[in-house]
């Protein structure tokens, strides 16, 4: 949409305040969430610990369905943080968006492709790193000409398409959700009380649906990250 953003220049780099502030808020929310749930860790879990363990089991099961059980120790933490962070980032803009003087300050950080690309980059870097670690550099490179040599260009291209599809899928889903939210908001303001009454239930329905989409996309993002990692760790 035609949002305006504040930018900060620092060390020759340009920071988008809306992206960074909301990403920071999402990260802090994730931390507060897990920190609050992990107090009084006991052998017989209380309610809070049960919730946290359910989420941990959920992300661990994503890994278990793709890789041997030993991988849970390696990637469990990453999958858990990725899932909770993306989930909170997706929901953040649905709950509140802050605009001051025409400038957006807080929104879902995942509505910016650069943020989702940064997350996808982490996943792919991890996959390449562990592939080199497992097969050695030679083995890692030779995986590009497997199963047959002429697939080399396709295999290389696949790395970029993986990166783009992983990041842009998340971005597209969340961005579209928030655009539609903003559009319905504009509709509500357009004709006074009548349009407000009509738009309110629409906005509620779309918000609910966006919560659902945000959860699904967090799951999909985590699962596909693990799929790419597991494929890099397989001998073809």
């Amino acid at each position: 949409m035609n949002d305006k953003y504040k930018f900060i220049e620092f060390l020759g780099l340009r920071f988008n305040v809306a992206n960074d502030l909301s990403a920071l808020i999402a990260a802090i929310l994730v931390f507060i969430f897990v920190f609050a749930l992990s107090r009084h860790v006991t052998m017989r879990p209380g309610k809070a610990q049960n919730v946290l363990e359910w989420i941990i089991d959920f992300t661990n099961n994503i890994i278990k369905s793709l890789m041997p059980d030993a991988a849970v120790k390696q990637f469990g933490l990453y999958a858990f943080v990725l899932f909770t962070f993306v989930f909170f980032a997706n929901q953040l803009g649905l709950i509140f968006q802050v605009k001051v003087g025409g400038y957006t300050y807080i929104k879902s950080p995942t509505t910016n492709p650069m943020i989702t690309m940064a997350l996808a980059l982490i996943s792919l870097l991890i996959s390449h790193y562990y592939s080199v670690k497992k097969f050695g550099f030679g083995g890692y490179v030779s995986n590009y000409v497997k199963p047959v040599g002429f697939l080399l260009p396709i295999n290389i291209l696949e790395e970029f398409t993986n990166f783009l599809t992983l990041s842009l899928r998340l971005y597209g889903n969340i961005f579209a959700g928030e655009v539609l939210l903003a559009l319905i908001g504009t509709v509500a303001k357009s004709f006074g009380v009548v349009s407000f009454v009509v738009a309110l239930p629409l906005e509620m329905i779309w918000q609910g649906f966006s919560v659902f989409i945000g959860a699904i996309q967090a799951y999909v993002f985590t699962t596909l990250s693990m799929v790419y990692i597991s494929r890099k760790l397989e001998k073809e």
Binding site: F15, A23, A27, M114, L119
Partner: peptide, 16 residues
């Protein structure tokens, strides 16, 4: 447009 945000996200994600 991008690199500062990317670095920020990377850093905050790692810290998180």
């Amino acid at each position: 447009l991008a690199l500062g945000d990317m670095l920020f996200i990377l850093l905050s994600f790692v810290l998180l």
